[in-house]
């Protein structure tokens, strides 16, 4: 019996508490953006729609910290308003895509058989086309309205959650540890809590962050090509289109919505570890 102690438990308790710098930075940025989005233009107390044709394309000043656009509207207020729109739409679509996607994925893996086949076929049908193409077409049913945009984004994004959850859950449920737990008498609730959630939770978080980034990009892309949200709504993509003709007079203006968009997407990606092996 003494011999056993000579075989060391090599991996001592080295729980990783240290997070990579990029992740911390990403989290901080996301938190900052969240505050900006919750506060909106109210943070600086300026109406994003108020025009002032006497002060168009003005450089940053005390009254307008980021300058004004071609109609004399305050850039900072408009960018904040855009953050509000993009991030709330992103959060909404993460929820409406993530919850059903995850639940259906587990259902599919748990029951298998026809349930799995039907749900799988439905997911394949959505994946038959590039996501943005589908969003574009749905947006075209009622151009300029945000709800078709939102519906389109949710409809394309749920598949990610579904496919990931289904695949991982299948592997986890086929694991000897689940069989052992079943033999030991653990019910479905405990199986989900002890086996499934710890196993797929972190992956879902990654999908959610990347999905939110996709949603933000899609909203801006569609706004930019004039088939999504439309002027005079303050939306980053719309603002880019509006300001593009004035790049020579005021190059700093067009770069502002571009920077906002890039920082948002970057922050979301970094918060889950950036481009680690997928």
């Amino acid at each position: 019996m003494q011999q056993t102690n000579t075989i060391p438990s090599t991996h001592a308790q080295t729980k990783q508490t240290k997070q990579p710098l990029a992740k911390v930075l990403g989290f901080a940025l996301v938190a900052g953006l969240a505050i900006a989005a919750i506060g909106g233009p109210g943070l600086i107390g300026v109406d994003p729609a108020k025009q002032s044709l006497l002060a168009t394309l003005s450089p940053p000043s005390l009254a307008h910290p980021l300058g004004t656009d071609h109609l004399g509207r305050d850039m900072a207020a408009r960018l904040l308003s855009g953050a509000q729109l993009s991030l709330s739409l992103a959060l909404l679509s993460v929820l409406t895509a993530g919850l059903p996607g995850t639940i259906l994925g587990v259902t599919s893996a748990w029951f298998g058989g026809w349930t799995d086949r039907i749900l799988g076929a439905f997911a394949d049908a959505v994946l038959a086309m590039p996501g943005l193409l589908l969003v574009l077409m749905l947006a075209a049913i009622a151009p300029g309205s945000w709800w078709t945009l939102y519906a389109g984004i949710s409809l394309t994004l749920w598949v990610e959650y579904f496919r990931y959850t289904r695949q991982r859950a299948r592997i986890v449920l086929a694991d000897p540890s689940v069989e052992a737990s079943r033999l030991l008498g653990l019910g479905p609730l405990l199986l989900v809590r002890r086996h499934l959630i710890p196993e797929i939770g972190p992956g879902l978080l990654t999908i959610a962050a990347f999905g939110a980034a996709t949603a933000v990009t899609a909203v801006a892309a569609l706004g930019f090509v004039n088939v999504g949200v439309r002027p005079p709504t303050a939306e980053w993509g719309v603002m880019m289109t509006e300001l593009l003709p004035y790049w020579r007079e005021a190059p700093f203006l067009i770069l502002q919505p571009v920077a906002c968009l890039v920082i948002t997407v970057l922050a979301l990606h970094l918060s889950v570890g950036g481009l680690r092996r997928s």
Binding site: A22, A213, T217, A220, A221, F224, V225, G237, M240, L244, I254, V258, L261, V262, V265, L266, H269, L270, G274, L275
Partner: peptide, 16 residues
């Protein structure tokens, strides 16, 4: 570089 460029949407990159 990859992480950064991945975060730049195609149309924004095009504009730049």
């Amino acid at each position: 570089l990859s992480v950064f460029l991945r975060a730049v949407p195609a149309f924004a990159l095009g504009v730049v």
